[in-house]
Nucleic acid binder design. Structure first.
Length: 528
RNA sequence: GAUCCCGUAGCUCAGCUGGUAGAGCAUUGGACUUUUAAUCCAAGGGCCCUGGGUUCGAGUCCCAGCGGGAUCACCA
């Protein structure tokens, strides 16, 4: 691999590295640096009257700004919690004759982005800024690349990195310089923890199920394929974990859940990443009506945990997750927004209706897909506050139990919020013979050219034949919920490392590997 | 996959109807012991995404490609 051409600033930093070594300073020292305080806590808790209690604090973090003034300097130190100003006086950090540490190391060789440890006392400057007066200063790690320098005044940011490509590819830089980005991912973690706590309080069991699956199922989507060399078999990355969690219900676990990273081989846009996270939960002896109440309670708690109240702002909208949420039925909602009752229409009549509304339809679309299309176009965009859409047609829901009052419907709901689906739940189909018929219908659609129709899973049917208790199941889109909760408008803003095309020239070392792998694996048997 | 927009210094951006590149921050040298978008003086820094084409001459115009964004399609 050819050596990357270094910029002038990178060359200067490498020279600084050598200069430090020449002074006997290890730019990457091995010893630990014990931190006693964090920037934000100091700023929040310091009181002038109690200054004597703040005589020795120890911090570590990254230098984000330098204001040098002869024999004194102000530095901005950023740690995980935030930023604090450091005040360094030459004669305090260098009490003896040797002023090298100040004159050379701090003034010349210290760069923005370097990681340092400091010890000193907290005080307030005459302009009122709580700061740390540094007595001891140690370089903990030298940065060889210059960081984009963002200036800030009165909350306004200058020279901010706007290029989304930069922010997504080099998320580590984004996290350093962009407090909002840090906040989003802290919120995401908090969201996950709130849900996990909520489920654990109820005694539900967190489990792990296969990502590599011989048959993909549990959703309608095209999968990623891969190949296992030792077993010489094709495998799929899961598009859902539903069928495995239900096997566990068969096995006698009453309630299981998993935060499932799922993979779908589809297009990417601001609502879709090829890998995404769904929380799926299955509870035995419950039905979808029970599940609806559980989800209301859970998501309301998430909103309160993240915002202190159930109301959030998303773009133009103010959205309330306060219980109870509005409920509509699938056909009722279509009627509400189009004025027409499509519940009795045949496939041909539906197709004609959809065409008349200007929707794109084709002959491979069965009744289910047609209804889905109509609903997605005519209803979904209008639902802003979280809304339960109840009782989906059976054609759309091959894994859901038929409705107790109407066999053409299923006991299924979705929750739509800000025009997007965030939750999908049903009373799970546990009739093995009906499940087999539904799979067969799906295979029929597949034969007609619907690439996303489900594939029959014989082992799953075998499990159902042993008997599965009546069960309520749900899937919650974690990425989308995070988007709502953080007012993010692209899924890439809530995924730490969103999928991107490879950067040119970055992964050249893998080129050979790919070739070998393809050869060793051979072409996986193609399927129809 | 389609359409539109974008790609210029480490970062944010200018660069007009074509005449071989500018600013601010960052960097380097100098001054400064309470600054905070620090200030003042001076300096360096460019495969203008890549490859073709038109032209005496291309950052600029045309074509193709690569990367990103937005919209659409598929999907959650």
């Amino acid at each position: 691999m050819t050596q990357r051409k270094l910029s002038d600033q990178e060359i200067q930093r490498r020279e600084a590295l050598e200069a430090l070594r020449a002074l006997g300073i290890d730019p990457y020292p091995p010893e630990r640096w014990d931190v006693t305080h964090h920037a934000a806590d100091i700023k929040a808790r310091y009181r002038d009257e109690e200054a004597d209690r703040w005589q020795t604090v120890s911090l570590a973090g990254r230098i984000m700004g330098k204001r040098l003034m002869g024999k004194a300097a102000f530095l901005e130190l950023q740690d995980f919690s935030g930023r604090i100003q450091l005040y360094v006086r030459r004669d305090e950090v260098c009490p003896g004759e040797d002023k090298t540490l100040y004159n050379k190391v701090i003034k010349k060789l210290l760069d923005i982005g370097d990681i340092v440890g400091v010890r000193g006392s907290v005080f307030r400057t005459k302009t009122g800024e709580v700061s740390v007066r540094v007595q001891e200063f140690k370089l903990l790690a030298k940065a060889l690349r210059p960081l984009p320098v963002v200036k800030e005044k009165d909350g306004k940011r200058f020279y901010d990195v706007r290029d989304p490509e930069f922010r997504y590819r080099q998320r580590y830089v984004d996290l350093i310089i962009n407090p909002r980005s840090r906040w989003v991912f802290l919120q995401r973690t908090k969201l996950l923890r709130t849900i996990r706590d909520f489920l654990n309080e109820r005694g539900y069991l967190e489990v792990e199920t296969p990502i590599l699956q011989p048959v993909y199922g549990g959703a309608s989507a095209r999968p990623f394929k891969t190949f296992h060399n030792a077993l010489k078999m094709r495998l799929f990355l899961r598009i859902a974990n539903e069928l495995y969690l239900k096997r566990l219900i068969v096995g006698g676990f009453d309630a299981v859940y998993e935060f499932s990273r799922d993979f779908r081989n589809e297009g990417m846009d601001r609502f879709h990443n090829p890998e995404f996270t769904v929380m799926e939960l299955y509870v035995a002896y419950k039905d979808y009506l029970w599940m609806a109440e559980l989800m209301e309670e859970m998501v309301e708690r998430v909103a309160v945990a993240l915002h202190g109240r159930p109301t959030i702002t998303y773009g133009e909208h103010t959205i309330s997750f306060a219980r109870p949420w509005k409920r509509v039925t699938f056909y009722g909602a279509i009627k509400e927004f189009t004025g027409e009752d499509v519940s009795g229409l045949s496939e041909e009549a539906l197709r004609a209706r959809a065409k008349a509304w200007g929707l794109e339809v084709d002959e491979t679309m069965g009744k289910g897909r047609l209804l889905d299309e109509i609903f997605g176009e005519k209803v979904e965009p209008h639902l802003i506050d979280p809304t339960f859409v109840m009782d989906y047609p059976v054609e759309l829901s091959p894994l859901a139990k038929r409705h107790r009052d109407n066999p053409a419907l299923t006991e299924r709901f979705e929750v739509i919020c800000a025009g997007k689906e965030i939750i999908n739940a049903f009373s799970e189909l546990n009739d093995p013979l009906d499940q087999r018929r539904r799979f067969e219908e799906q295979m029929g659609l597949r034969a007609k050219g619907d690439e996303e129709a489900m594939v029959i899973d014989e082992d799953f049917l075998r499990a159902l034949e042993y008997g599965m208790p009546p069960t309520a199941g749900v899937g919650l889109g974690i990425d989308r919920l995070t988007m709502l909760m953080t007012d993010a408008h692209s899924i890439q803003d809530v995924i730490l490392f969103p999928h991107m095309r490879p950067e040119q020239g970055l992964y050249t070392a893998l080129a050979d590997h790919d070739d070998e792998d393809t050869e060793a694996a051979g072409e996986p048997p193609s399927e129809g």
